[in-house]
Design a protein around this nucleic acid. Structure first.
Lengths: 195, 195, 195, 195
DNA sequence: CATGAATGAGCCTTCATTCAT
DNA sequence: CATGAATGAAGGCTCATTCAT
């Protein structure tokens, strides 16, 4: 029973990614998602509160998986520099490898009202916190500057990577996103300064 | 004649900033903007092609002014480090000082379809190019690392600042944005590394 | 299921005849039709593509019924003169007996754009063809002149009857339309000439 | 002064024929007519009460000229048969030679509400009366049947010709309209009957 | 659990008309 | 007489959501 429920739940989410990515959030009708998912319109509302909820759930679900991946990959990495590199690598490659999800994340998800953004903020928090813990770890180990403002730094890191992904996406993915990892990480670690 | 035209044009844009900031783009009726601007609904369409055009024009107009400010402020600054600091300072303080515009820029503007994002991209370009020229100048002067990927770096800088502003905005502006300038700039210049 | 669907479909068409006849096509709001039909505005669009489609469907539906009547009545009539008389009789009496439909047919239907007129032309075709077949039959039987241009004649017949109906309608139906049958038919058969 | 007035009046009417014929009445903006006429929007309202009035005036004006032509041509024709032939000839050739006006007359003019149709009816009246007088004359001279219902006959004649023109127009003017004169007149004179 | 027909609120845009200049 | 910027009423259509089956 529960597994069947989950099954349909994921059917709908999978359909939603496709439809949102193809048409954009506002131009995606719930009925279209239902059609792609192979369920009736009304069935959507047995699994989701409303259309917004589909987008939020979609994001939470997928981001949850992603954060899972981050944690798994970082499990045996104690070196902060290496951790930063790993995070950036996963961030870029995962989105590069799943353009539909990337599209929803970088473009459609921003088409949200204030309430939704708060919900989305909650979903992103684990990732932001992951960044924070890595920075903290780096400071503790002496690899990173002790005077870093951790709360600010995590934003700067996330924002920088986020912008790179979005620009790559809007450009039409004309170049390799994963090839930007090394230079991005180098910027994070060494900054702009020559010395 | 032309000045009167411009007058009404700006009346409408000023009204639009307020209305968009207060209600969000999709929940802002054109008639509401007209009311706030003190013109008839139809008058809007003498100055703008449609609702989207209001948002785009608004952004272009205001961002144009902002880029103007950047250029003016940078005119007598040849030091690349100082230029980065100035840019970040203006970026943060201008948006901190004009929350309505910040809101439209950081939140509402993202609620746009692909076509609009392209138009917006065009408007942001001058700013991105400004960042690029500063980075180039820093490399040339030897202040910045010669191996920087300029195209990537400008995105990392912009994305980092952009995220800081958005997060500050969504947090409810509970802290000072302009106080983040120094630490942000330090991150840009020195990166994460301890040495 | 299907019968219920048909039910609502005809509910809407019946409402449309009334509303169009009373207010004219352009001054008839879809919402008014919905109200009279006892359905929600949106329901209209489950059965019709748009407002134009209502008018076209209405015409096709009703004219279809009418052509049916013509065929039924002509089934056992082999005499061409009698056939002409029957057609004219049905044409006048049916419209006289259904003023709302007559109004829509003679007045509102003409308020259509070129695209609609093409669709309408298609619907009228069976009737025009009926006229043609009767004329052909009359020629074959020797009752009608062999040198008649059939394609032209059918138009002259239709146009003449059509104008009589329209004029009667615009006059405010101050006289009996069906009483015009004999004289009309006599004109068709004998023309103007004295001999 | 008056002549100048008339000048602009006709400028506008000429523009209106073109614009109505090209776009249809409902899709023709007053501003478009003004543009084509080379006057300001507001100027239109110095010469016409409203948009409807343009169409009606246009029709009255042009039809007046046409009726004038009818009268001139019929001046020296005392033979009723010949008169019918002349009328049909002028009716077809004039409209064939002025497709814009034909379009407005046969298609756009029908896109009118009840009030307009009454006004139009008034304008057509002289033509209908002309037909009536010819029929009367034919009866008096013994050329036409004495038992003709004159009021009905004039409608049958007008309606028949009108339909021929409209069908020719909608067909895309693929054949010669003026070549239909002889057969049409023959139908009017001899009717359908063989003997 | 699932369906899908029905609902009905909501809004951008057009354009005939006016009137201050 | 002429202008044309400004007006503002008006309505077709969409689509998220519901609920009887």
């Amino acid at each position: 029973m529960t597994s069947r429920k989950k099954e349909k739940y994921h059917q709908i989410l999978d359909a939603a990614v496709k439809v949102f990515a193809e048409n954009g959030y506002h131009k995606s009708q719930v009925s279209k998602i239902a059609k792609v998912a192979g369920v009736a319109d009304g069935t959507i509302y047995l699994y989701f509160k409303n259309k917004d909820d589909i987008l939020i759930s979609l994001f939470q679900e997928k981001l949850g998986e992603l954060v899972e991946k981050f944690h798994t990959s970082l499990e045996h990495i104690s070196n902060a520099e290496e951790a930063i590199r790993t995070i950036c690598h996963i961030h870029y490659t995962e989105l590069e490898g799943n353009i539909d999800f990337a599209y929803v994340t970088q473009i459609e998800l921003r088409q949200s009202n204030m309430e939704m953004r708060v919900a989305i903020g909650q979903a992103v928090k684990p990732y932001i916190q992951l960044l924070e813990s890595v920075v903290n770890q780096g400071i503790k180990s002496g690899q990173f500057r002790a005077d870093l403002d951790v709360k600010l730094t995590r934003l700067l890191l996330f924002g920088a990577m986020d912008e790179v992904v979005t620009t790559w996406l809007i450009s039409g993915q004309k170049y390799s996103l994963s090839e930007q990892v090394d230079k991005s990480v180098e910027f994070f670690l060494k900054g702009l300064k020559a010395t």
